[in-house]
Design a protein around this nucleic acid. Sequence first.
DNA 1: TAGATTGTTAATCGATTAACAATC
DNA 2: TAGATTGTTAATCGATTAACAATC
Lengths: 207, 207
Amino acid sequence: MQKYEASSSVVRRLPRYYRLLKELEREGQRRTSSRELGERLGMTSSQIRQDLSCFGCFGQQGRGYTVTELREHLECIMGLPQKLPAILVGAGSLGKVVSENVRFEQRGFRLTGIFDIKPELIGKELAGLSILPMEQLETFCAEHQPAAAVLCLPKESAQAAAEQLVSLGVRGLWNFSHCDIAVKGAKVVTVHLDDSLMTLSYHLHNQ
Amino acid sequence: MQKYEASSSVVRRLPRYYRLLKELEREGQRRTSSRELGERLGMTSSQIRQDLSCFGCFGQQGRGYTVTELREHLECIMGLPQKLPAILVGAGSLGKVVSENVRFEQRGFRLTGIFDIKPELIGKELAGLSILPMEQLETFCAEHQPAAAVLCLPKESAQAAAEQLVSLGVRGLWNFSHCDIAVKGAKVVTVHLDDSLMTLSYHLHNQ
DNA sequence: TAGATTGTTAATCGATTAACAATC
DNA sequence: TAGATTGTTAATCGATTAACAATC
């Protein structure tokens, strides 16, 4: 596994590049250039070349890039083929939508377990998995070694659950709880829907 | 309505400040300082003072900030009390969760209408509103003048719906469709769950 | 008064853009 | 060969951090 040196500004843009390349593939386009990519994304061709250069050389001077080839390279850079085992903690309405709507298999993960604390949810099926009680979390993790966990918990219990998960070997958290989480030894990516909506409010308020 | 000059880096941090201040209020704390805020958020006190200075002077030299006062200022800066009328377009599973879980009233908006194209959803209730058919969108907008719309549509129909909404007077779009949207005359804030998950994959893949 | 902390100006750092030699 | 476009180095721009006078 190759390691790269890229700033978080660069990493945040990789999925956009990936999305556009898949779109170009659907449109049947074979080759492209940093100029074309830049135009379609509303950014400079310089930035695209600069970003890609963090990871290697994927084009040909004078000829540009092969769409499929570049798309595959981006997939590998982001680790999408690895399909790391992941679990979902919290099977309420939000957890349900996330488990059913997010295409984990195409995004680097494989959902292998779903947990909730509520007795009435245990045994119900979600995304093809039977919801398990939190008491089984420890033995499940020992057996299946999930690398990541999706947190769909109320904010009061999120931090404690995060710490438990990390102690059980989880290295990445995708956090939907309405709070920030701080844990040592794991990467946390938080989705703050409320923050996103507030920035929209800001922009509408300030012209 | 006062206009401010703040970069998007600053705007993105405002909700975090706001969240922390509400937390401090819950903890019963009266006063705080840029040093304390910075420590709790893992950033420098300089940045916090610099960010706030885009909008005015909210502290006292030597004494810091009053928690509640600063929280109220942030609320006004982000326009949270304005409660702009907003509609939801697309009442599928994602739209359902968004309408039921997002606290629009505390985030600058008021949900006044929900629309879907599927006949079997029309008339059903969601977030206290009866789902309306898309055919009524135009007359509804003429009457209620929604300032914003939440888009929970498949990516194929998102762009066209966005354009229609903007032509009907909508000035802001909160986009959950799995695509980017480009419209003139409106602010678009897109929530790319897939992108967020891919950055987690990237970080786990690259150590 | 002495210590603390703001708001702001200056210095530094990092990210974006421009330029260009290499070469397809 | 001439035109196009990469990968990379240099220049510019913007954002973050440091420093400090003002003052509570």
